[in-house]
Amino acid sequence: MIHSTLGVIIAVFFLISIISLLWWMLHVPPIIPQVAARAHREVEALKNLLIPTQGMAYSERGVELACRLGMEQNATLIFAYVIEVPRTLPLNAEMGNEDKVAQEAISHAEQLAALHKMKNKSLIVRSRSAGEEIVKLAREQEADVIVMGIRQHIGLKENILGRTSDIVLRKAPCEVIIDKLPGEEET
C-alpha cells in the first residue's frame, strides 16, 4: 500500500533523474575525422577579416557573409574602401564626390556589423591600384582572410574575375574568399 504522495513523487523523480542522466551520457557525439577537424579549427581561428567594399549590392553581400563567417569566433572585421586615383593625378587630388561615396559605403558596412554586434574598424585609403592596396592592407592589418563580393558581369566574357580580384587572388598573403552571384545568362 502506498504511504504518501510525496513518496510517489520522489520515486518518480528519482527514476526520471537516473534514466535521463544515463541517457545523456550514452549519447556521445560522433567522432570528427582529422581532416574535418583541421578545417573546423582553422576556420574558427580566423580572427581578422578584411572586407574591401564599394557600397554596391555585391560588396555588401560580401560584408554580410564576412559577418556570418566571423560571428562564432567573435572576429574583428576590417572594412576597407580604396579610392583608385588615376596616375595622371596626384594621390591627394580632388575626386569629386568619391570621398562621400566611400564614407557611405563604409557606413553601410558598419551598420551590418552592428546588426551582428561585431567588432569592426574602417579604413578609407587612396591608391593607384585597388588590388595592390588591398594586398598591402591585408599584410599591414595581419588579416587572416580577405572576403570580397564581386560584380556579376565583368568586361570580356573570357575574364571570370576583374582586375582587382585577380591581383588580390594572385598576391594576397592570406586566404581569399570571393563571392560572385551567377550572371543573368547563367541563371
Binding site: I2, H3, S4, G7, I10, A11, F14, I18
Partner: peptide, 13 residues
C-alpha cells in the same frame, strides 16, 4: 534503484 523506488512507494513515511 528497485530498493529505493519500492521503499519510497510502499514504506516511506
Amino acid at each position: 534503484s528497485s530498493v529505493i523506488v519500492f521503499g519510497f512507494l510502499f514504506a516511506w513515511k
